[in-house]
Design a protein around this nucleic acid. Sequence first.
DNA 1: CGCAGGCTTTGACCTGAATCAACGACAGAT
DNA 2: ATCTGTCGTTGATTCAGGTCAAAGCCTGCG
Lengths: 229, 229
Amino acid sequence: MAIKTQSTAQATQPPVDNGSCETPRQALSMFGIEAHMGATIYFDQNSEIYGENEPADYVYKVLSGTVRTYKVLNDGRRQVGAFYLPGDVFGLEIGDEHTFSAEAITDSSILVVKRSAVIAQAARDNGVARELWAATARELRRTQDHLLLLIKNAQERVASFLLEMADRSQTGGAIELPMSRQDIADYLGLTIETVSRTLTHFETAAAIELPRSRRIVLRNRSALNKLNA
Amino acid sequence: MAIKTQSTAQATQPPVDNGSCETPRQALSMFGIEAHMGATIYFDQNSEIYGENEPADYVYKVLSGTVRTYKVLNDGRRQVGAFYLPGDVFGLEIGDEHTFSAEAITDSSILVVKRSAVIAQAARDNGVARELWAATARELRRTQDHLLLLIKNAQERVASFLLEMADRSQTGGAIELPMSRQDIADYLGLTIETVSRTLTHFETAAAIELPRSRRIVLRNRSALNKLNA
DNA sequence: CGCAGGCTTTGACCTGAATCAACGACAGAT
DNA sequence: ATCTGTCGTTGATTCAGGTCAAAGCCTGCG
């Protein structure tokens, strides 16, 4: 249960695309909209990108950094819906309002385009319409997997998380986690204590190494996979 | 944890649309495809409509009856993904295979159309393309809500379930549940014992009445809503 | 009508993760 | 180099829900 996002940090508002992006690995386009038709916006660590129930007028793509989406329940507990890494699209809605809030976990640069532009493009171009559908379907698949996670036990959840992150960050066996234990706990529906204990347990069992708290080396992937099911 | 689907029951295969549907409240069309271009198929209770990983060549719409989708985990536990009531569309995928299995909970009549026909229609008609996207987005929203359920406690889960069912079946305060306690438990990530105990508890607290195990009358909706959050 | 088998409820007990409480480790500020 | 606050780890204890077990209850069938 985390609540405080002591983000006095603000987004460095629209210092529009200056061409010199430090991580230009990510395609500077989204749904047929080129970057120059949108804007690259820099968000400081812990700054809000959009809030739940705000109008969903824009669609976002991570160019660098990491983003979390989340929802705060009325009892103050927070559920993290997803983590988005460079290349990932988020904030795409069919309704008029965002269903989750979004925050930058680290300083991030985000490509932002108007949703209306994307939808107009889809009306013109069939391929874009299909891309739009595919993006939502991908998000659905991801959410289904996340849901299946939540019925498993703590070890299985943490193992799945590690394997997912290792897979997505493409850095082989070593992962540099951008998010805190609290973020992980809120994603997995556990407490920070349980996440911490489980990681220590994996380390003791020689399945991982923990040189620093945010750095994790997968030592025995198949052991984790067995838990992952 | 449920596993046995003692369904020797088979689908009364394609006795194509005979016009005389007992519950013609549901529009006999889907994504611009009229019923006569598809087929109405009758499925007996507990018969399989499709299996996980089977090719997703068809899209389905419940005309009468109730359907569950589910996944069996490697440890034998079953997770019910959703219940579909008359009017609901299910089995729509963007990938080539179904990600869940689907079974009829009660004897059901289902409108079935070829996915390729729907996709072809979407390529021609922009409105259909948008409908397709909207259907997937609706499913995403539903899955997100389901996910949020799973981090709540037993009382909150059961209360949410009751309110959802009451809302969807539109029969006012009284609901006739088509599904077993096991189905409910597997949907909510609980055991049948916990579901049963929680219902008894609600009855004791005068929030509901339980004239028969499958019949539930909501007596104090606001009490349930408070739990629902 | 009575019996059989599946569902559902209820009870007793156990366990995995939450909670409560310290303590350690690290980063930035002075 | 030391202080300070945040983040992470570890330990002790509690409790919600799972597990195991035994009865009710209902429906269909002989």
